[in-house]
């Protein structure tokens, strides 16, 4: 962790147009929660449905893509990363710092609104609010790590990230049972299921597998990103 790098990265991530997209997503979640409340569809079932499909299914991967790639891909794109890399700081430390920034942003923009949306609808009933908030936290951390790695590895990080999020997690993960074992969303939902006692939330992955997969993916992605940064090469423009 390096304070200077973290400071610059926070400013790059939150100081420009990117932040509006980061704000928009939780805002829509809260707006939906208010809408459900107003039309009186604020049962436990509707809450779980909203959090599962929207908070974890849509908002979380999008926040992950925007923040995860946002901490490093634009800098690689315009060459400013050289300012950080031409310093006597180990590259894995740079990767870890960038990851912490991305993870903290995703956590802040996902966890709090998720908890708030659930609380707005059903209070603390059946541990749904805390369960999904925890799921958003762990899932957000894993997404931040994976998408940061993508940002280091390829110039088309955002496109590949959304293809993964939409096709693999959205389509394949929801229809092909086998693929569910390899989906960040499903791992996060398993964590939510563990905390919450709600009958409307069922998952088919063991908690042990889900937790270890989350840890392995997050740690592995950050380590790999550090390794890739060690061999960062400046070449001509595309």
């Amino acid at each position: 962790m390096n304070g200077v790098i973290a400071g610059i990265t926070y400013r790059a991530l939150l100081g420009r147009r990117r932040v509006w997209l980061l704000v928009l997503l939780p805002a829509v979640l809260l707006a939906l929660a208010v809408l459900l409340r107003v039309i009186g569809a604020d049962g436990e079932r509707a809450t779980v449905e909203l959090l599962r499909t929207f908070a974890i299914g849509v908002m979380l991967p999008l926040l992950g893509v925007i923040a995860g790639t946002g901490v490093i891909a634009p800098e690689i794109d315009d060459g400013t990363i050289v300012h950080l890399l031409s310093k006597p700081i180990s590259r894995p430390v740079i990767a870890q710092t960038k990851f912490l920034v991305a993870a903290s942003v995703v956590a802040a923009f996902a966890t709090v609104p998720t908890f708030a949306a659930a609380y707005l609808l059903i209070g603390l009933e059946a541990g749904v609010a805390s369960g999904f908030a925890l799921a958003a936290l762990v899932g957000g951390v894993a997404y931040a790590a994976v998408f940061m790695l993508l940002g280091v590895v390829t110039r088309h990080a955002v496109t590949i990230g959304i293809i993964y999020a939409v096709i693999w997690e959205g389509v394949v993960g929801n229809f092909v049972p086998g693929a569910r074992r390899y989906s960040v969303q499903q791992w996060a939902q398993t964590v939510a299921d563990q905390v919450s006692s709600s009958a409307f939330l069922t998952t088919d992955i063991g908690i042990g597998f889900a937790v270890s997969a989350l840890v392995v993916v997050s740690v592995g992605a950050v380590l790999w990103a550090g390794r890739r940064l060690r061999s960062f090469s400046l070449t001509g423009d595309e």
Partner: peptide
């Protein structure tokens, strides 16, 4: 080694002072 790359590797949102100071801090 000090490196001055050809591309405009500068953060537009920092002031010149902040930019050079960040460099000094990164060198501890």
């Amino acid at each position: 080694i000090g490196l001055v790359p050809e591309r405009e590797a500068v953060y537009g949102f920092l002031t010149g002072w902040q930019f050079v100071l960040s460099s000094a801090r990164l060198h501890r």
